[in-house]
Design a protein around this nucleic acid. Structure first.
Lengths: 235, 235
DNA sequence: TAGTGGTCTAGACCACGGT
DNA sequence: CCGTGGTCTAGACCACTAG
């Protein structure tokens, strides 16, 4: 049910519930979720609200709407879409995967006269007793915005969860540039890259909060076995 | 003005007009476009329609909405966002750049028993009398869908314009995977790549029409001087 | 023909920014 | 305080799909 007194918008509440049901497998790949009208009645709201919620699912690439037919579930195995910059752990959580983070470095650095935390993590998934690393994340965060950030253990806690819960800062928007990068020795070991691979994909950019303040600079290097997928609508 | 008898939806008509005004420079980088209420009155429509139009601009990364303030123009120099897969020429047109295409190969190939056109083009921009190539595009299109496609001159005509105007097929959705790729000799010459660059960015995937029929397989290799940018909203 | 998503209207109240 | 975008309501008609 939706809670009108909650300050989370109704359509976001509805989006989360529908997403949960899809990821739980209540609606499976290739099936249709209930029609907009049915959802509207079930949750006692209006179609506009339902459509707002579903459009978030479409953005996530979780469903696809077909006129005259219905709203189809599109669930594929582990897949990296452009929505993932906002938090690896969050992403794994909604996909019900077990994430692993290994902190390679955490120190304070100075850039242009300002002090930043520099956090480097290798991140991956655990299946049975083998861990596969999927990306190496470098995060640069201003000390002034996040005093005491180094007291958290980012092998156990999610960076974005800490930002939200302890610093009340909500990542809102990313600007990321993609490019290839050649493989250094440490990276080759972490990812166990085959010898005939010479380059990996790198994403580099900034993350902004709801007030358009830059809260984090990121650099992510992706393992070669990652499918970096993008789905777009053309206008 | 908007034409209610046109079968292009009002919000798409409005989107196109606003986009035109932004790209023409009527609203400049850092300025606000008229408020939703003003646009609503000026075009004699409702706010829902205005918001649909503006949300397309937001998707394009052309504007950004700020509550309590207004809708801000975000225009940056030549930049490749994820909306570009749908057509290089179209993209340049809306950016008022002069595009150049050079056909490297056009032939019929057989894949899994079906015949396809395979079109390879180097594509770039012309500034003064120097041409800079930005990408090498390989397009694979089924002969059955596009009979006679090889009669067109794709150094002069846009592939997507031909698909729309001659074959009445409208690209609607893309699924693209990004990865790094090492540079071969021909590519190195076309892009005039520096010797210490060893890898480029490759995008590979499929394009679907409005009925979710796969109309084209694409492979695009990007020049090293291309900024491949992505802007996303986080939920 | 019945049901679906796509579009549009005409309102309303809210949180937020700047005056 | 007023104007902004954010959210929500309660309808309407349409094009499309499928039985």
């Amino acid at each position: 049910m939706l809670d009108k007194n909650n300050n989370v918008p109704l359509y976001v509440q509805l989006y989360r519930q529908l997403r949960e049901q899809i990821l739980n497998g209540e609606y499976k790949q290739g099936e249709f979720i209930p029609s907009e009208t049915e959802v509207m009645k079930a949750f006692e709201t209006t179609r506009g609200t339902v459509r707002n919620a579903i459009s978030l699912l479409v953005n996530d690439g979780l469903v696809q709407q077909l006129r005259g037919k219905g709203t189809l579930v599109l669930l594929r195995p582990l897949q990296y879409s452009i929505t993932n910059f906002g938090g690896f752990t969050d992403y794994l959580n909604i996909r019900k995967e077990v994430g692993v983070s290994k902190v390679l470095d955490l120190r304070i650095v100075s850039l242009e006269g300002e002090r930043f935390y520099k956090l480097i993590r290798a991140r991956g998934v655990k299946k049975g007793d083998t861990t596969t690393y999927l990306m190496i994340d470098t995060s640069i965060l201003p000390v002034s915005l996040f005093p005491g950030l180094d007291q958290y253990d980012f092998e156990k806690e999610s960076l974005y969860q800490v930002l939200r819960e302890k610093y009340l800062i909500y990542p809102n928007r990313t600007e990321i540039a993609l490019s290839p990068v050649s493989i250094d020795k440490q990276t080759r070991e972490i990812f166990q890259v085959h010898e005939n691979e010479h380059a990996l994909l790198k994403a580099e950019g900034s993350i902004f909060d709801q007030n358009n303040i830059e809260i984090e600079k990121v650099k992510i290097i992706y393992a070669p076995n990652i499918e970096f997928n993008i789905m777009t609508k053309l206008n």
